[in-house]
């Protein structure tokens, strides 16, 4: 008799713990890997030059846009980020066509639209590279809180660009939604994008 009470209590507790766990897992709010931004204003529109002519942010309303600022001479930081974005696209599978990656050159002196396009395409065929006049680039960068600076260095490189290496996510309605810091794994990017696509 005492035995039965014990086992009833034991399995009852087990059941409750299991149910609680399931409910928590099922109904907890999704925790984004990227930094969530609550913007009241839509992301500022811009028009820059791609290899196929002018490209505006508003051309991609209805898609999720990933905005990244970099330059083709960058051999370490930019390819690292583009490789993670490529990884995210691979993981998204069919949903990848809901996502548009745009890389803006912060080195318009050296990067022509053709050059930056060839560079980004190497990572993923649908990635778009854009550039513009130094004034245009400066304006877009300021609007998105991107810092960049040309820095002369001793040696053969001539100059390097220091730049914010975050990825800005603009949702389908045209609002800035997330920021991915440098080094965010493609797996985390894909998980966040998948959630945005499905909700």
């Amino acid at each position: 008799m005492r035995n039965r009470t014990f086992w009833l209590g034991f399995f009852g507790t087990l059941l409750l713990v299991g149910l609680g766990w399931w409910a928590w897992d099922r109904f907890r709010p999704y925790a984004f890997h990227g930094t969530v931004l609550q913007s009241n204003e839509p992301a500022p529109d811009f028009t820059l030059m791609s290899a196929d002519g002018p490209v505006s942010l508003s051309d991609f309303r209805g898609k999720i846009v990933l905005l990244y600022f970099g330059y083709t001479f960058c051999p370490d930081v930019c390819p690292t980020t583009l490789t993670e974005l490529k990884r995210a696209m691979e993981l998204l599978g069919e949903d990848a066509d809901q996502v548009q990656v745009i890389m803006v050159s912060v080195d318009p002196e050296r990067d022509t639209p053709e050059k930056i396009q060839e560079y980004v395409e190497y990572f993923w065929p649908t990635f778009i590279g854009v550039t513009g006049t130094p004034e245009q680039i400066a304006e877009v960068a300021t609007q998105y809180g991107i810092y960049y600076e040309k820095r002369e260095v001793p040696g053969a490189t001539g100059y390097l660009m220091d730049h914010t290496a975050t990825v800005t996510v603009i949702d389908r309605d045209g609002y800035v939604k997330l920021i991915f810091p440098f080094g965010t794994p493609g797996e985390d990017i894909a998980a966040d994008l998948k959630y945005l696509i499905e909700h």
């Binding site: 930081v77 810092y147 960049y148 820095r151 260095v153 040696g155 390097l160 220091d162 914010t164 290496a165």
Partner: peptide, 10 residues
């Protein structure tokens, strides 16, 4: 760099 931007240097 300070502020989170990435730089490269010799």
């Amino acid at each position: 760099k300070e502020g989170g931007a990435m730089g490269m240097r010799p």
